[in-house]
Design a protein around this nucleic acid. Structure first.
Lengths: 161, 161
DNA sequence: TTGCACTTTAGAAAGTTTCTCATTACGTTC
DNA sequence: GAACGTAATGAGAAACTTTCTAAAGTGCAA
C-alpha cells in the first residue's frame, strides 16, 4: 500500500530481469519496450495504461498508445505481468509472486498482500464441488475491500465531529 | 454456473420484491424500471448493460441506454444489485446473499458460489495487518478462476487426441 | 386534478481498448 | 558489416463502455 520509491538499483534489477525474459520469449528489444519496462517493472501502484503512457510521454513524445498496450500484452503473454480489474480501466501488475489485493473504496488505492499460494483451500474446493460441479479451479483471486489507513483515520475523525 | 431458466413464478417473486424495495427507497416505478427489474431480478448469468439493453429492446424499442444504467445504479444504491468486473464491461449481479464467483477462463461463463459470510478470516486479518497496516477490511471478494465443467471436458478430450 | 420533482430520451461526449496499414528497425544470416 | 525477413511502431480510425446534457415526459403526493 505504501508507495515507497524503489532505489535505482532495485529498478534496474527487476527491469533487467524482465527484459531478459522478454528476449528469451523471442520478442524484440526496442527502445520503447525498454522504457516501458523500466517504468513498470518495480511499480507497485498498479498503473493503468493511461498512467504509464503519461509517464513515458516526456521521454518518448512520439510513442503510440498502442505500443503501451502491445508491450503490456507481451509481458502478460510471457507471464511477467498480471491484470487487475477494479474499475473501468484495467490496472497492470508487475508482481508475479503469489499475492492478493487490498482496495480502498474511499480513495481507490490498491496494495499487494503476499500469499503463500493461490491454490484453493480444501473448504473452498468442497463448496465449489456443490456450487459448480465439474469446475476445475486453477487459482483463487481475492480482493480485500475496505478503507486504507489514511481514509480509515479520516472516517473516524469525521464520526467524532 | 448452469443457466437454469427460473420458473415464471420465481421471476415474479424476486422481481416483485425488488420493485417493492425500490419504491420503499423513494424511487418512482416506471414501466422501464419494471421491465428491467423483471428481466434482471432472477438472472444468474451476470449480464452486462449491453446484454440487458438488447433483451429489453423488443419490448421497449425506444428505451435509452442511459435508462439501463440509471436503473442499475438505483438498484445498486438501494443495495439490490452488485457489480462484477472481470472484463472490459461491468457485469451486474442481482444476488444479494453472500457469495463469491467462479469464472471460466475458456468461455467466460460466470457462476455464483454461496458463502457463509464475506468477512475476512482471522488468518487474512493477520496477513493484512502486516501487508497493509491500518487497513480496515469490510469484505473479501473471491474469484475462482479455472475451467467450467464443459470446457474442462473439452480440454481433456483435446489432450487425448 | 395539479404540480413538482424525478425519469426518460436522444445524442453528444468522455474514456478505454483494439485495429489497420504504411513505415521503421531488430536481429539473424550471409 | 550489409541485406533481408519479420516483428514492432506510429498515427489515426474505430469499436466499445460509460457518463453527461438538455428538453420533454410522467409518477405520485397533496
Amino acid at each position: 500500500m505504501t508507495k515507497r520509491a524503489p532505489s535505482p538499483h532495485e529498478i534496474d534489477a527487476r527491469a533487467r530481469e524482465m527484459l531478459g525474459d522478454l528476449k528469451r520469449a523471442g520478442l524484440k528489444l526496442t527502445a520503447q519496450r525498454e522504457a516501458i519496462v523500466r517504468h513498470f517493472a518495480s511499480d507497485a501502484t498498479h498503473p493503468t495504461a493511461q498512467e504509464l503512457y503519461d509517464r513515458l510521454r516526456p521521454e518518448f513524445p512520439q510513442m503510440s498508445f498502442a505500443t503501451v498496450y502491445n508491450t503490456l500484452d507481451a509481458l502478460a503473454a510471457a507471464g511477467l505481468s498480471g491484470t487487475l480489474r477494479v474499475g473501468q480501466a484495467a490496472r497492470f501488475d508487475p508482481n508475479t509472486t503469489p499475492h492478493h489485493h487490498v482496495v480502498c473504496e474511499a480513495c481507490g488505492a490498491i496494495g499487494d498482500v503476499p500469499a503463500p499460494s493461490l491454490a484453493p483451500s480444501p473448504a473452498a474446493v468442497k463448496r465449489l464441488g456443490r456450487a459448480a460441479p465439474g469446475f476445475r479451479v486453477r487459482a483463487v483471486e481475492r480482493i480485500y475491500r475496505g478503507s486504507c489507513a489514511a481514509c480509515a483515520r479520516a472516517e473516524r475523525e469525521e464520526n467524532v465531529s
